[in-house]
Simulated assay, not measured.
Amino acid sequence: MALTESVAQFPQALSIAGSDSGGGAGMQADLKTIQERHVFAATVLVAITAQNTLGVQDAFALPTTLIDEQFASLAADLAIKACKTGMLADVERVKAVVANLKRYNFGPLTVDPVMIAKGGAPLLSEAAVSTVRDELIPLATVLTPNLPEAEALTGLTITTDQQMHQAAEQLQTLGAANVIVKGGHEANPELANDYVLLADGRSFWLSSPRIKTHNTHGTGDTLSACITAELAKGADVETAIRIGKAYVSATIAQGIVVGHGHGPLNHWAQIHEGDAHEI
């Protein structure tokens, strides 16, 4: 059945990820973010975790047949304009997601190469890192690794600005069109500096003040989801990345307190016109 023009008009985005029962990260963070950015959010659930602000207690990866069926169901009815990946669990699930992304046109893809939870629990098997690098990254319109993820994907040790440049360039040679290497794990006590390398060769830094808080659970999911939402609305990649950075900064600055560990962001946070261009 062909999609009608009216169905295709409202911006729709897709989160392909794992569930966080604590609500702060994973698919739950994606849904809250995409909704807050005034985009309709759909989901393909890859894995389920028993998780809270203290850590991940258990995880279960869904059968690949069910992953396939979720993709087919969405393709038959919705008009997805942009999509993102998060927790993909293991080699088998990464390969299933890659196959479906090649099968269906769900618009530009943002890849958040989720590997380790905030509390330290692994969310991607070691064997699957090479599958992400070799099969998923070449499909990425935007790739958003943090420093440990960039190190795992490139084999580099990243402690300086120049090494962040080098990592971004190497990740781009793997096939990612645009790369943002997130500097939240770097040692700078005053600023969180992210390095952006665009497909056209332009590059720039995005900086925001560090805020002393433990409530940063789900920052990577939130950034990639916000970028995806903006792309679904038709924004260019640079604008989407700048809005994503501004939104994540606001979710930390306008924080809330939930749980006893690494608490979640405030997904109700508001950014004002011009915020994205001031970072």
Rank of each mutant, 00 (worst) to 15 (best):
L171I: 02
I211L: 07
V196M: 11
H165W: 12
V237G: 03
L198F: 06
H185N: 05
P189W: 08
L198T: 04
Q166E: 15
A168E: 06
D221E: 12
E169C: 05
S207W: 05
W205V: 11
G234Y: 10
P189M: 08
G218R: 02
G234C: 10
A167N: 01
P209C: 10
L191R: 14
I180S: 13
Q172W: 04
V237D: 04
A225M: 07
W205M: 10
K182A: 04
V237F: 05
T222Q: 05
E230M: 11
F204L: 15
G184H: 01
T219R: 00
S224V: 13
C226D: 14
A176S: 02
S203C: 15
D194E: 14
E238C: 07
C226M: 13
D236L: 11
N178L: 12
A176H: 01
K182C: 06
S208Y: 06
H217L: 03
E230L: 07
N193S: 12
E238I: 02
E190H: 14
L206K: 02
E230K: 07
H214V: 05
V179N: 00
H185P: 01
T213I: 10
H217N: 05
E230D: 06
L171V: 03
L198V: 06
E190R: 12
H185G: 03
G183N: 03
F204T: 14
A168N: 08
G183R: 01
S208L: 10
A168K: 07
A192M: 00
E238K: 12
C226T: 15
G220S: 05
H185I: 02
E230A: 05
E190Q: 15
E190D: 15
Q170I: 10
L171A: 04
T239R: 12
K212R: 07
E230Q: 14
A176I: 03
